[in-house]
Design a protein around this nucleic acid. Sequence first.
DNA 1: ATCCATTTTGCATACGTATGAAAGGATGAG
DNA 2: CTCATCCTTTCATACGTATGCAAAATGGAT
Lengths: 342, 342
Amino acid sequence: MANEKVTSNDVARLAGVSQSAVSRYFTPGTSVSKKTADKIKAAAEELGYRPNVLARSLITGRSRIIGLVVAYLENYFYPEVVERLSKALQDQGYHVLVFISSIASEGVDQITQEILDYQVDGIVLASATMSSELAARCHASGVPIVLFNRLQDDVRLSAVTSDNRGGGRQLADLLVSLGHTRCGYIAGFEGASTQRDREQGFRDGLEAAGLSLFAREVGNFRYEEAQAAARRMFAGAERPDAVFVCNDHMAFAVMDVLRFELGLRIPEDVSVVGFDDVPPARWPAYNLTTIRQSVDDMVAETVAMLMQSIKQGDGTARRVTLDGTLVVRGSTRTKAPTEETR
Amino acid sequence: MANEKVTSNDVARLAGVSQSAVSRYFTPGTSVSKKTADKIKAAAEELGYRPNVLARSLITGRSRIIGLVVAYLENYFYPEVVERLSKALQDQGYHVLVFISSIASEGVDQITQEILDYQVDGIVLASATMSSELAARCHASGVPIVLFNRLQDDVRLSAVTSDNRGGGRQLADLLVSLGHTRCGYIAGFEGASTQRDREQGFRDGLEAAGLSLFAREVGNFRYEEAQAAARRMFAGAERPDAVFVCNDHMAFAVMDVLRFELGLRIPEDVSVVGFDDVPPARWPAYNLTTIRQSVDDMVAETVAMLMQSIKQGDGTARRVTLDGTLVVRGSTRTKAPTEETR
DNA sequence: ATCCATTTTGCATACGTATGAAAGGATGAG
DNA sequence: CTCATCCTTTCATACGTATGCAAAATGGAT
């Protein structure tokens, strides 16, 4: 109710020094004599003074705010990203302003405009892409942008991804080595680079073994749509003997349909593999073979890129691709069947 | 790189009007003539001008930022909260600054100080509590605070919770009605009000039926610790025939141990119930009977409380308790066994 | 005690916007 | 045409802080 803002002037008055002395005391890298420092410290503590970040950023031009655009937290890969990224940035003295973009395309641009209004020092786009026009604008404003887990043609945009194509390839190789011959694929949102790359890598791997996709359906990265896709894929007489689902989140849906609606055993009747290695993937109920994307590594790389752009004013875009790790669990059979058991 | 900030002065110059006219044009509730409005609009669009939120908040005293403190996103109840809350606040023209508090007690106060540095208009503490001292400070600064899914003794703090005690009671009544007599309880973090209230309600319900807790272990809201708790609880010769786990997240861990380590059938051998109704609870793999806390309703209430405090300057704390809904699924048996089947 | 080199301090101004007060302009009634 | 009324517009200032510059103070060294 009673709004008692205490400013640097109040502290200065109480300490018997000038406002600039107070400002200097709270600005790292400036020198104040021990004596006045003590006086200011005492006065500040008595009044409970803390510098106003907003006023500070008005003059320094840096807000110490990083905008994070994230499309949907339903996929449990992203909560982990939010958590790690926030923590990592907090350690650097930055904080995260979150923006949820409901719809794919138009929304992001609109949202990003709003972000820029806050004079953010950088933007992280997770599972979202932006128009080239807006990218140019951000570039012109000197606001660095990092795409997280997405790639885009625009070369002015930095990006951190894992090797999605390589990961898809690893999964194909695994399934092939286990003797699978009828491999289905359940796609994510077709506009996503992760979707395209994972599929391409998977197809490459099958092709290298003289195989091709046995079936393909689209799940759009959503649980319910993935369920429906699985139902369609297994409706026919001849069923796949293995399925690569474009991410873990959808893989859970597929496994649930196979087991509880169709009565299939995993991995005896069909192997299932996913991508991401979110926490539930290692829960015994799913025990899913997948490709691990290290959130920690991706976050560390993202923070490093942001800090470099901010501190060095380096406007050049960089792309970093981290290797994914194949994690073999119980949703894939352990070896090729020696004789036809079906 | 080349930082070209375009200010209201630039727009004013181009449009041939004063800076204050530009400001008025962008401030809702002020009047500008059609003619100058058009000129300003044209100039602003040409330059790509957007008001600087930070500068604006410096003078208005409101930042349109809400600080959100959240302890851990591992429990999938909270990602949903972050998403819905962000969206709801975005609709009101506010945005969410996220703070992750790693450790329980000390961390929150430290973090909250940092939040206040950003001149936030309000604070939401999800799964976290703060010291009374700091609460007093925020109260004095006129920054409204809403505890989300937590209660605290300090009456100056507003809070939104669901009826945890009633929910615990409902679950006890259900288990009793199904003929369970050896009911175990796996607790969350003991310092949490949700933990205490749910346990109390559960005990009340058992007591009303002439029963008492058959076993009790602590899982601290963490998956791994809940697994360990389940192992301890089922190590003895006489096992519980039903378990209430303080939240869904831990319930999944318990179910996984019961099924995949101990070979027990759910619900034939043991019924399991949880609390929250996070998305995986309705996935067939778990199909968990639980109490639904409506995130949407809780968020709506939270936003309403914040808006009232901000706009009306109403400093009085309010507490809202929403009813939880019992959702009966397949992790509880459907009726009491007619004869002893063990 | 004098002078210079160095550090510390205060003054004044700027950041980009909002807003009260005053001046300007339009409009209509007489 | 004059005057009063109301709506627009401009002027000037304030928000809370950082920082270049000049003034003051400090500390040696002679």
